[in-house]
Amino acid sequence: MNNEKRNQNYLKYVEQKSPKASWFKSLFHAFLIGGAICCFGQMCGDIIKSYFPLMDILLIGTWINVIVITLTILLTAFGVFDKIARFGGAGTIIPISGFANSISSCAIEFKKEGLVFGLGAKMFYIAGPVIANGVAYSLIVGIVYYILQILAVV
């Protein structure tokens, strides 16, 4: 029997049979939660600005990050964040909250194997690949930008 053909047909059949998440609903959830996180960040920024009108805009940005990261880690530790993320999907992963959660959840999970070889080694288990790829891609973008600058396009 031709297994390759059988497998292809089977995978096509499974694809058809598997229930699909409604992408409109997923998009709406992501918009809701992602938007709420961003609005919260903006709100923090505005409050800081109203108390410290002379503060540099970049420094305000840093403060917003610090607040969102701290809150995410607290929510992760209390076991609430994964429930929000299950609802919000990419809406919670794309903002910096997703990054903070990926590191803190690994830290909690692997603490049982010890502080050095557990927590220390596996804290970046999920975030590590993101950082490595982020650096690699920004390098490529940088080179492209440099060439475009030489060619006087930008």
């Binding site: 229930p19 997703g98 959660n101 959840s105 999970e109």
Partner: peptide, 17 residues
């Protein structure tokens, strides 16, 4: 979960299947 998938508190969505 910790052996086959992700840490418990990691926020991701489960597939409908």
């Amino acid at each position: 979960e910790r052996q086959y998938r992700n840490p418990l508190e990691f926020g991701n969505q489960r597939q409908t299947y």
